[in-house]
């Protein structure tokens, strides 16, 4: 992969998780000792810094409203969440939508469909909608990160809900936004992509509807989702742009839109952490470092 030394230099700062990382962890620990938790402050923290993996799932659960801000209620509320999970699971088993060997993601999809009143009749469950594929990708990635199935299901459900409620309307505008920022960062690359008709064929579904699930390895994906869960969907645009910039030389060498799409859909899994770090830099550069929740 061809690297631009200047851009590389910027992110070395992030890749060294030294003193800065320790300081961040400490300040998060202080925030997590608050009772009740200050959700707004936690949002701001995750917008600015990557979450330490030790606390990530806990913070996500708070940000997505799975856990309430009051520590005293955590046990009770998680008991409710657990019961709700098992109630749905059991009903689906009785109705034979799922069985013991059903893949976890399929179980999660049926559960989600039941809870959003979109469960098809048992007699026509073979049919899958395109949005179900998006759900599968997100669910698979989340389950791999979280492992615990009750937590996984709740995180998937609230992530998908938040994503469609909060960002559903901005989703169609993200490709235009990508084009705009790319014109600022690298107009030559943009012109090349336009001239071979690739701009309209970029893997937008993988990037913007699946939120990079199945595109980036989990360790990098988590850092993108930190920003998404804490309230910014613009980060998706900058990760997409950074992918384009990172593979600039390679992309400039391709003249067929199909080859470009194919390459990006099966992007190499190396250096993805650096790509995310640079994307976060670019995002802060263009949108400002968030002091408050966006």
């Amino acid at each position: 992969m061809a690297e631009d030394p200047q851009r590389n230099f910027r992110s070395i700062y992030y890749e060294k998780v030294g003193f800065r990382g320790v300081e961040e962890k400490k300040s998060l620990e202080i925030l997590l000792k608050d009772d009740p938790l200050d959700v707004e402050k936690l949002c701001t923290f995750s917008q600015r810094f990557p979450l330490p993996s030790l606390y990530r799932i806990h913070v996500w659960k708070v940000l997505l409203g799975i856990l309430p801000p009051h520590a005293e209620s955590h046990l009770l509320v998680m008991k409710y969440r657990d019961e709700q999970y098992h109630d749905v699971l059991h009903a689906l088993q009785v109705m034979r939508y799922i069985h013991e060997d059903s893949p976890k993601v399929e179980i999660f999809l049926r559960m989600y469909q039941l809870e959003t009143e979109k469960l098809p009749r048992q007699t026509d469950i073979t049919h899958l909608e395109p949005e179900d594929e998006d759900f599968f990708a997100i669910a698979k990635a989340m389950y791999e990160m979280v492992k615990n199935e009750v937590d996984s299901y709740w995180l998937i459900k609230c992530f998908v809900n938040q994503f469609s409620h909060k960002y559903g309307d901005s989703l169609p505008h993200l490709p235009k936004s990508l084009e705009y920022y790319l014109s600022l960062e690298d107009s030559r690359l943009l012109n090349h992509l336009k001239s071979c008709g690739a701009m309209s064929k970029l893997p937008y579904g993988l990037w913007f509807r699946k939120c990079f699930a199945g595109c980036l390895p989990d360790s990098s994906l988590q850092r993108v989702w930190d920003k998404l869960i804490s309230g910014s969907c613009k980060i998706l645009v900058f990760v997409a742009m950074e992918i384009l910039l990172s593979y600039k030389i390679m992309l400039l060498g391709m003249s067929k839109a199909e080859s470009i799409t194919q390459f990006l859909e099966n992007m190499p899994q190396e250096n993805t952490d650096a790509i995310v770090s640079k994307a976060v830099d670019l995002w802060h550069k263009h949108c400002g470092t968030p002091m408050h929740t966006i």
Binding site: P68, R81, E83, D87, A91, L119, Q122
Partner: peptide, 28 residues
């Protein structure tokens, strides 16, 4: 108040899901 309302919301969500389960069961 905020603590109580969060607890109530979680309890309600559990109830609403039960209702949805009943509806699907009836349909099937």
């Amino acid at each position: 108040k905020s603590q109580a309302s969060h607890q109530l919301l979680a309890a309600q969500s559990r109830y609403i899901t039960q209702k949805q389960i009943t509806q699907v069961l009836e349909r099937e």
